[in-house]
Design a protein around this nucleic acid. Structure first.
Length: 283
DNA sequence: ATCCGCACCTGTATGC
DNA sequence: TGCATACAGGTGCGGA
């Protein structure tokens, strides 16, 4: 479900109710998600203080006072819902448990964080904080698109010699972290680049132009609280609203919104996933 | 080394 | 109403 803006939105929703708080009780309702949970996960979480919530790519990382870091990935359908009245804003009870509530964290401040994931493509693991970057799932991930390491020269070099479509290259987490199907479509639309074009065959200046466009679309999406498709919610249950700003994604058959363009958004399938683009102005 | 297709799983929308 | 099919925000893995 979530790409970088949605994960960042979830992190921002969780931080005020989790950072500095102790996990009074962790409950784990099944042995696995995509992979088995680490041994004794509930016991290793219970009683631990959450020092800080970080994000790397589409992973949320919770540093604990035990020297371990809880790694969380939401997969396609994962949600983190906050209930209780941790900030004293208003009073409401915890909702009834639902199907697919796999992990529940009751915090000392009364907040309850429920991880719900119908498709179970999500994941959790416990890592040594000191060496978290070297964890198998994190070691090969490319630069954060909103950070300084993601630069024009970097992307030009990363695309050089690549024979794969630019759509696939931007989905490759080793090239740049955090992009998924939606934001790749949106970035390519804004850059006027066809998703079918081979990454290594795009002029350097046009590749360089992708960098600010990617930054811009992600920043706008975070500002809007992410995109709500199907059931994605912010941690407080509010809907994000960036989906109303899509120019390409999900707009098959609708008119191209590029200034002066009379084209129609098309849908093609690339490596098993839908790409939405305007064949007229994206070249 | 690169690239592609498959697999993992459930829920929902669509069409007959 | 029932049933089959297609599709969905991700990504690790095996084989070409």
């Amino acid at each position: 479900m979530p790409e970088l803006p949605e994960v960042e939105t979830v992190r921002r929703g969780l931080a005020p109710v989790m950072e500095g708080q102790v996990i009074a009780l962790a409950r784990v309702n099944r042995p696995d998600l995509r992979w088995p949970f680490p041994a004794d996960m509930a016991a290793r979480l219970t009683g631990r203080r959450v020092l800080r919530l970080r994000r790397r790519s589409k992973y949320i990382l919770a540093d604990l006072d035990s020297g371990e870091t809880l790694l969380i990935h939401l997969g396609m359908s994962g949600r983190m819902l906050v209930s209780g009245d941790p900030l004293g804003r208003f009073v409401h009870d915890h909702p009834a448990a639902e199907k697919h509530d796999h992990v529940v964290l009751d915090m000392d401040n009364g907040a309850r964080i429920t991880f719900n994931d119908p498709r179970r493509f999500g994941a959790m693991d416990l890592l040594e904080t000191a060496t978290a970057d070297q964890h198998k799932l994190l070691a090969l991930i490319g630069p954060e698109p909103l950070g300084n390491d993601f630069s024009e020269p970097y992307l030009v070099a990363a695309f050089k010699g690549r024979n794969t479509p630019v759509k696939s290259a931007l989905l490759d987490q080793r090239i740049v972290a955090g992009l998924g199907n939606i934001y790749v479509c949106e970035a390519l639309f804004r850059a006027r680049i066809s998703p079918r074009r081979k990454a290594g065959q795009i002029a350097a200046a046009r590749v360089a132009g992708l960098v600010p466009v990617i930054r811009q679309v992600l920043a706008e999406a975070i500002e809007a609280g992410g995109s709500s498709l199907r059931d994605f919610r912010q941690a407080d249950g509010e809907l994000g609203y960036f989906q109303h700003s899509f120019d390409a994604y999900g707009r098959e058959g609708e008119p191209c919104r590029a200034e002066g363009c009379t084209g129609t958004i098309a849908r093609i399938v690339q490596s098993g996933r839908s790409s939405f683009y305007c064949p007229l102005c994206q070249r």
